[in-house]
Design a protein around this nucleic acid. Structure first.
Lengths: 228, 228
DNA sequence: CATCTGGCTTGATAAATATCAATCAGCGAA
DNA sequence: TTCGCTGATTGATATTTATCAAGCCAGATG
C-alpha cells in the first residue's frame, strides 16, 4: 500500500521509473508539510536530513555572509532541492524559504541513499538530476561573470518568454527585489535596468512585462544555448 | 591484463574502489595524451565523448560569450572534468586548455556510463564526484555574489595558505591574469587589490606571496566554512 | 473610507570596477 | 649580451554599480 499523498512525486523525472518496492522504501518515514509564505524551512550549515521536493508553491534558495544576502535560485513545483548534501551526508550550503504558501515533501536522506544502492533506475535518475543542477549552476555562473546586469535582465526576460511557450506578455513570477538579488544587483539598479531596456521594446507595468520588439531585444541580449 | 599506464587513476577517489573487471572495461578504448602548455583540448559546445582526467600538469576550464572570456576553475593532477556532460551525453558548457605541459587520460563516455550501470561502487563514486563538483561551484558562486573583489582575493590567499598545510609563504599556482579572471576582475584591479591588502600584512614579490600577519588577514577576510 | 505599510522608483552621490595608455620587469631567442 | 615579447604595474579617466534619501503607489488593515 503506497501512501497516495506522495503519488504526485511520480511525475518528477527523479522518481518516474522507480519500482513500487523502491517507492515504498523511499516514502517510509517521509512526510508532507504545508508552509505559509515567507518561512525559512532550511538554514545553511544544518545537516541535510531530508531530501525536499516542492509539491506546490515556490521556494527560494539563498545564502548569506557577513550581513549580506543573495538569492541563488528559485524553485517551483516538482523541483527537488538539497540533493547533493543529501547524497554526501553533508551540511547544506544554502538556506531555503517559501515565497508562497507551499507544500513540501520531505524524504529521509537515508532512504534516498539506500534506494540509490538498491535500484539502478533510481541511481541513474539521481545522477541525471545532479548533473542537471550542476550544469544549471555553471550556466548561472557564466551569466554572472560574462554579462553586465542589463544584459542579464534582457536574457532573463527572453528566458521567461521562451518558458511560457513564446508568450510576449507575461507576469514576473517573483517580486522585483528578489529578481534583482538573483540577477546580482540591487532593486534600485533593476529599476534602472528596466528603463535601459525601454529602447529595445520592453514595456513594464508593475509585474507585467510586454516584449514589444522581440528581434530588437534578442539583438541586444545575444542569448546563447550554452548559457540560457 | 590491465594497461599499467592507466594505473595512476586508481589513486583518484572516483576509481579507487572499482573492480578489476570494471577497470578493464573502463580503460578499453581509453588513451593517454601529452599536451604542451596553452593548448585548447576541449571547446564548449562540442559533445563530451570522453571523460578527462588530469594525470599531471594543470588545466583551466573557461567560458566565452560575445568576445569576453572568464576562467571558471583551474584543475591540477588527479582531477576529473566533463563528468556531468559525460553522464548526460550532452555538450560541454566549458572549454579547457592546458596551462602547463600536461598528461591527460581520456576515457570514452560510453564506458563510463555503462560501468556506472554495472558497478554499484563506481556509481556511488560518480555521485560523490558530481556532488563535490556541484557543491564547489555553489561555493564559488556565493564567493562571487557575496564578496567584493578584495575580499575574494583575501580569502583566496587564505585558502592557498590552508591547502599547503598552513604555510605562510607560497607561490601563486597560476599567472596573475588568470587568477584575476577566476576571481572575476581585471588584471589591473588584481594589482590594486594586492596593494589594498598590504595593510593586512600581505607581501607580494612577483608570484611569491607572504602572509606577514595571519590574524589581521583573517579578521579582514572573514573566511567561512560554507564558502571556502 | 482613511490609513498604513512595504515594495518600487527616481535623483543625487559615492564607491567599486573597468578601460586606456604608458612604463616596467623578466625571460627566452637570436 | 641585446632585442623583443609578454605579463605586471601604475596613473588617469570612464563606466558600472551601490548607497542614501525622498517620494510614490497599490494592496492590506482598521
Amino acid at each position: 500500500m503506497t501512501p497516495e499523498r506522495f503519488d504526485s512525486i511520480k511525475d518528477i523525472p527523479l522518481f518516474a521509473k522507480i519500482t513500487d518496492e523502491s517507492f515504498e522504501h523511499l516514502t517510509r518515514g517521509a512526510f508532507v508539510q504545508n508552509f505559509p509564505s515567507n518561512v525559512e524551512i532550511i538554514t545553511e550549515g544544518d545537516t541535510a536530513d531530508f531530501l525536499h521536493i516542492v509539491q506546490s508553491g515556490c521556494v527560494e534558495l539563498f545564502s548569506t555572509w557577513s550581513n549580506r544576502e543573495t538569492t541563488m535560485t528559485t524553485l517551483y513545483e516538482n523541483s527537488t532541492f538539497i540533493l547533493a548534501a543529501t547524497m554526501k551526508d553533508r551540511v547544506n550550503l544554502m538556506s531555503a524559504r517559501t515565497l508562497q504558501k507551499s507544500r513540501i515533501i520531505m524524504i529521509p536522506s537515508e532512504n534516498v541513499r539506500s534506494v540509490f544502492q538498491s535500484d539502478p533506475h533510481f541511481a541513474v535518475a539521481i545522477v541525471d538530476e545532479l548533473s542537471r543542477c550542476y550544469r544549471a549552476t555553471i550556466r548561472n555562473m557564466k551569466n554572472l561573470k560574462l554579462r553586465t546586469s542589463i544584459e542579464r535582465l534582457a536574457n532573463y526576460l527572453l528566458k521567461q518568454y521562451r518558458r511560457r511557450g513564446n508568450t510576449l506578455a507575461f507576469r514576473l513570477p517573483i517580486e522585483k527585489r528578489r529578481l534583482a538579488s538573483y540577477l546580482g544587483m540591487t532593486p534600485e539598479n533593476l529599476s534602472r535596468a528596466f528603463t535601459n531596456l525601454k529602447p529595445y521594446g520592453v514595456v513594464v507595468d508593475g509585474q507585467n512585462i510586454t516584449i514589444a520588439d522581440l528581434d530588437k531585444l534578442i539583438e541586444f541580449a545575444i542569448p546563447d544555448d550554452l548559457i540560457d
